[in-house]
Design a protein around this nucleic acid. Structure first.
Lengths: 115, 115
DNA sequence: TCAATATCTCAATCATCGTCGAAACGTAGA
DNA sequence: TCTACGTTTCGACGATGATTGAGATATTGA
């Protein structure tokens, strides 16, 4: 279960243009992930800079990495992302589901839009 | 619909201990919101500091305010929060709902835990 | 109008973050 | 082992952010 410190770190990591692009790119890429080099091109940052941001994101638990040959493949940490969302909305709306129903609907729709 | 700039601003706003506490406090408080003074006490910051953070949060669209007598009442912007979540998870997992099902389940559960 | 309460603005200070270039590291193939 | 490739580490600089205290603004009740 996510605690406040982790959540702050995760949100701070997402609160930066390039890092948010990186995470969204990886979320879109699916569980297989992407190599660092392709990510740098897709996001539009230098290799050095990407490395810095990926380190930050790894440390926040939002992305994971594995080596494949001479490339390093990064993927979105879907489970941690969902825990982050849950942390933010926990105990919401004082038992009035209609208040946060839009959030539930928005997230439910995310997997169907691409189908 | 939320764009990248807004999302970055919103996540950056949440990526700070006191601001995250403020938003979570307001999310828990429900649609009626809380007065600034009670928020300061609940979150544990000085009035000056709270004002600075609330301004930041208002500017990011995560909270709204209204005057009531000599108090100013702040509330969570539930709709903007849901759009933020949707922005992060848009086009996720390449059509494999099982990947982000945990996120959907986590958010759906948020309104039932307090019941 | 006066005093009291609630909240905000302003200016200054200190710490942290993002970016870059150069160099180092690990891996693959000849 | 040597070279090429992909990625990361290091040191430095400039920019942005958090916090504080004092003063300003707005509202209420006497």
């Amino acid at each position: 279960m996510m605690d406040e410190r982790q959540a702050v770190a995760a949100f701070a990591a997402l609160g930066q243009e390039h890092r948010l692009r990186i995470v969204r790119q990886l979320v879109t890429a699916g569980p297989e992930g992407m190599a660092a080099g392709m990510l740098a091109e897709a996001v539009g940052v230098s290799g050095t800079n990407l490395s810095f941001h990926l380190k930050e994101l790894s440390h926040s638990g939002l992305v994971t990495s594995r080596r494949e040959g001479r490339s390093i493949i990064y993927s979105a940490a879907y489970l941690d992302l969902s825990e982050l969302i849950q942390f933010l909305m926990r105990d919401c709306c004082q038992g009035r589901p209609e208040v946060c129903a839009p959030a539930v609907a928005a997230l439910s729709a995310c997997c169907e839009e691409t189908a």
